[in-house]
Amino acid sequence: MTESDVTRRTVTVGLPNGLHMVPCSGIAKLAAKSASTVRIVGNNVTADAKSVLDLLQLKAECGAELIVEAEGEDAAAAVESIVRLFETNFDPDGDRPESANTDTALP
């Protein structure tokens, strides 16, 4: 696998409470649908995007910049779907059904 096989995008956490357990679960569920290896990098941590435990290691607060990257046959689609979660701020009313996650006042 060469560097050129890695699809990579930068996202910014827009959730006021940061990347807490609910959005982490949303990312993990989405990543699990992909055949690719999906990672999120930030805060000197590389997290397996399919693992909530790993994603919580990012302790990404509002405003944090993260890199979403994937390697594999559907890498581009996997990265795109996760970037979409961030772009819609994990809003269930986003225009894609798979972004059905909530970020309420509860952490």
Binding site: N17, Q57, K59, E61, P107
Partner: peptide
């Protein structure tokens, strides 16, 4: 919220 995230990170680590 940052303390909550750091607590979760500590526990899960």
């Amino acid at each position: 919220p940052g303390d909550h995230l750091r607590g979760l990170e500590t526990i899960t680590r």
